[in-house]
Design a protein around this nucleic acid. Structure first.
Length: 695
DNA sequence: CAATTTT
């Protein structure tokens, strides 16, 4: 399918333009779409502004800061074939879902308030329709008179509506969940700018569960949690349909080929050396064994840290107090090792075991440094961010924010998350209000930079979490471009549990004489994880997985592909094991919700791709099943690091075919893991033993 | 193969 074909007759173009046109000349357009949202206005204040944009004033606006220009009307955009191919992607068996009563016997769906009046799942058009629906084929949208129903013009006009298909649009209205039943928008924490709303935080923050605690790093906050009111009486997050639901399928195919920086529009802000064209030759030269080979890592042991406090490391009182309130009373080894160097302004490479507290290791000193630099006083609107933390997945970005944000707020600094899969508007608004620390995934960050909404030129500290992964193919180049846009002499921090020479390209170009830290005695031998490898006949695999997964505790299953993850989740549900999935074929809302299903314990089995392999923390996962063996030893280490956190016991079971034994042994060797490798088939008692080992 | 953008 011609991915880039320009449809005859320029239909998509036609469909794009009227959309924008209609927005401007047509009815009013509200930025917020539901009553209760903090920005909601019955008489949209934004409407007049749009008119102005549309008028001849445009010339007058020429000189306006980039962030305020309606820069979205770029020509070539509308000519692009839009999202056509999305619909052509395989459905991954979603359709079958609707045929099964599965969700009916699943956890107490019916108990949940907001969905109470919805029909049973099977009656609804179901997500299965999605792929058949021209979801993103905006083309049809404007042609459908249905959406111009009378009340439309009275409504706030849903400016962005066309752009965000909601589920079940095609269904008769009566059958769709009425949006009025939803929790008011304002009650739902929004991804991007949570911290921007003073109402939500401030002093109480530390006493509250602070969104972060939900599935954050282990040690912090555990005990207090149960004592606190917690958001228990709120509708569980996962139940509140949210932004992402509108795109049923996230965009993919991120046009790696798409030329960045629309040629006809020079970057306006930081015009100078922004993203120097492509690469002055590939920087990655494998034979340069820099980093950990040449630079001796300074090992810190837990004993070295004994009796040391965060204050001793150089953090200020507010931050120390905040850390204590988050459950981090005293620094972990990796934190004690790196914090002083970070505070000293050095570039740092930090390697600490999965779940060893890396987020605080970089988060708290970054906050401290920013505070030092401006005396905590510079809060002018729209100030440019000064620190940037990048992560490979959205979930991880959110999780980092949950840890860093309270620390930042404790000294009056603001953070915001920037990632894709959700409407950008809120993110842009927070940026305009001014933030100090951006926590981002590379794609959306670059997008907003290109749009002129983000100025990276004042970024003095950049952190790469999961740094080795950020240097993998597909991430490396965007990361390089972003780093080049930050202050040239800025401080850079690279953290990962598997930090290796793969980061050489970044280190060489961007770090100066970095301090390298690792924590001694944190090898797999000292780990609390029991590693097993099961050699299983291909035909037995489904049943073996079922047997392993039908258990009490939380189980995380890794699959290599999204399709298989989805299929496995379906299979388990069919078998009566409540399970959900997490992978890139889900929209962000469902990703967030499904992960929340596991953290909340509503579902005990999550089947995920490697999107969940790194960084994300869920309490008490005691069994990790690798339905497909990983290709890389590092992947093995990260996946297995989802269990056995905070010193708890965990089991990792890897299922392989006979033909993979040798490769598996090599991989385990590289990971320095010793694991029993035994044949297994359904019904084996061993499987039950493994399933119940930790429950 | 997965992950990473679409206002």
């Amino acid at each position: 399918m011609p991915k880039n074909k320009k449809p005859a007759g320029g239909r998509p173009a036609k469909n794009f333009e009227p959309r924008y046109g209609a927005k401007k000349t047509g009815g009013p357009s509200a930025g917020s779409r539901s009553p209760g949202h903090r920005g909601y206005r019955a008489e949209p204040a934004e409407a007049p502004r749009k008119d102005r944009w549309n008028s001849e004033d445009r010339d007058a606006r020429r000189g306006a800061p980039a962030g305020e220009r309606p820069s979205y009307n770029r020509g070539e955009r509308s000519e692009r074939p839009a999202y056509g191919d999305r619909n052509e992607r395989p459905a991954y068996n979603r359709a079958e879902r609707s045929e099964r009563p599965a969700y009916g016997d699943r956890a107490p769906r019916g108990d949940r308030p907001s969905y109470g009046d919805r029909g049973p799942r099977a009656d609804r058009p179901s997500y299965g329709d999605r792929t058949e629906r021209p979801a993103f084929n905006r083309g049809d949208r404007n042609d459908r008179p249905a959406y111009n129903r009378g009340e439309r013009s009275e409504r706030p006009a849903y400016g962005g509506r066309n752009e965000r298909p909601r589920f079940d649009r095609d269904a008769p209205r009566g059958e769709r969940p009425s949006y009025g039943d939803r929790a008011p928008r304002g009650d739902r924490p929004s991804y991007g700018d949570r911290n921007e709303r003073p109402a939500y935080n401030r002093g109480e923050r530390s006493e509250r569960p602070s969104y972060g605690d939900r599935n954050d790093r282990p040690a912090y906050n555990r005990g207090e949690r149960s004592e606190r009111p917690s958001y228990g009486d709120r509708a569980p997050r996962g139940d509140r349909p949210s932004y992402g639901d509108r795109n049923d399928r996230p965009a993919r195919n991120f046009g790696g080929d798409r030329p960045r920086y629309n040629k006809d529009e020079a970057p306006r802000r930081s015009a100078s050396d922004f993203y120097p064209a492509k690469d002055e030759k590939a920087r990655f030269t494998p034979e340069e064994d820099v980093v950990l080979e040449r630079l001796e890592a300074q090992a810190t042991t837990a004993a070295d840290v004994d009796g040391v406090s965060f204050g001793d490391l150089g953090l200020g009182d507010n931050i120390c107090r905040q850390l204590a309130s988050m459950g981090a009373a005293a620094p972990f080894a990796i934190q004690a090792a790196t914090i002083p160097d970070v505070l000293a302004g050095k570039d740092v490479l930090g390697r600490g075991k999965t779940g060893s507290g890396k987020t605080i290791a970089f988060g708290s000193p970054v906050v401290e440094r920013l505070m030092e630099n401006n005396g905590g006083k510079d809060r002018k609107q729209g100030r440019a961010p000064r620190a940037l933390i990048m992560a490979p997945t959205r979930e991880l970005a959110m999780q980092i924010d949950r840890t860093v944000q309270p620390i930042a707020r404790s000294v009056g600094l603001f953070t915001t998350t920037i990632f894709g899969g959700v409407p950008q508007h809120k993110q842009v608004m927070s940026l305009r209000r001014g933030v100090d620390i951006i926590i981002a995934t590379p794609g959306r960050l670059e997008d907003l930079v290109e749009q002129g909404h983000i100025d990276l030129s004042n970024i003095t500290i950049t952190v790469l979490d999961e740094a080795d992964h950020m240097c993998d193919l597909g991430f490396l180049e965007p990361v390089q471009r972003i780093l080049r846009a930050t202050k040239a002499d800025g401080q850079r921090l690279l953290f990962s549990a598997t930090l290796d020479k793969g980061v050489a390209a970044i280190v060489k170009e961007f770090l100066k004489d970095p301090a390298v830290h690792e924590v001694a005695g944190e090898d797999q031998a000292s780990s609390t994880i029991d590693h097993r490898v099961l050699v299983v006949e291909h035909r037995d695999k489904p049943m073996v997985i079922e047997q392993l997964a039908s258990r009490e505790g939380k189980t995380l299953i890794f699959a290599r592909t999204r399709a298989y993850a989805e299929q496995l989740a379906d299979q388990l549900e069919d078998a009566g094991i409540p399970a959900t999935s997490l992978h890139g074929d889900l929209n962000q809302s469902r990703r967030t919700r499904n992960l929340q299903l596991l953290t909340s314990g509503r579902v005990n089995v999550l089947v995920a791709t490697d999107v969940a392999a790194r960084g994300i923390h869920v309490d008490d996962i005691d069994l990790v099943i690798q339905a497909d063996a990983p290709d890389e030893y590092k992947t093995y280490m990260h996946r297995s690091g989802r269990t056995g956190r905070a010193g708890k016991q965990g089991t990792v079971v890897t299922i392989i075919p006979r033909t993979r034994q040798r490769r598996m042994n090599e991989l385990l060797g590289r990971a320095e893991i010793s694991a029993d490798m035994v044949p297994a088939q359904p019904g084996d008692e061993l499987l039950d033993q493994l399933a119940t080992a930790t429950v």
